[in-house]
Amino acid sequence: MNIFRFAGDMTHLISILVLLLKIYATKSCSGISLKTQELYALVFLTRYLDLFTGFISIYNTVMKLIFIASSLAIVWCMRVHPIVRRSYDKDLDTFRHYFLVAASFILALLLYEKFAFKEIFWAFSIYLEAIAILPQLVLLQRSGNVDNLTGHYVFFLGAYRALYILNWIYRYFTDIHFSRWIACVSGLVQTALYADFFYYYYISWRNNAKLKLPA
């Protein structure tokens, strides 16, 4: 474990806490893409298949449980919670995310570290996580004004993988066995997708103005 990876995990956790805060404080999920949340739940469920078979550390197990539980809780809130579900922008959140699932799965069958059940699903979860934010970014552009908590949520979500890139660079120079090309390349693509969001987030912070993405 290195400081970059720990900071990355904490930033990821903060993004989830900010989203939970937004939903519980405002009793609303406006501006949040249910499709992206469903994709994240799928990412965690397919990546942590070794949750009960392999043990790495208490920290690793606890964080996996938190990520799985929180992503499922958010999907439940947006689909079932009588008050929250009413504020879901159903007619704006129309990205066909099944294509993202299919493309990631096909790629995982072609490009993997080892042709084994858990490895294919691990690669699938890595590819899917890289593009899972697309429905959310499209929704932000469509819904114009972005409330503060939603903006912070997306910012921390993008920042966590950028910290993981620093972690991979660090491990590349310190770990002789280290070779995580699948995660590295996907992580670069994932972070690049946030580039324009990061720019408009910075502008809104510098001008102390509302976050606004061009349509």
Partner: peptide, 10 residues
């Protein structure tokens, strides 16, 4: 064989 490279990252 080298220790199975487990995915130790989240």
């Amino acid at each position: 064989s080298p220790k199975q490279e487990r995915h130790d990252e989240l």
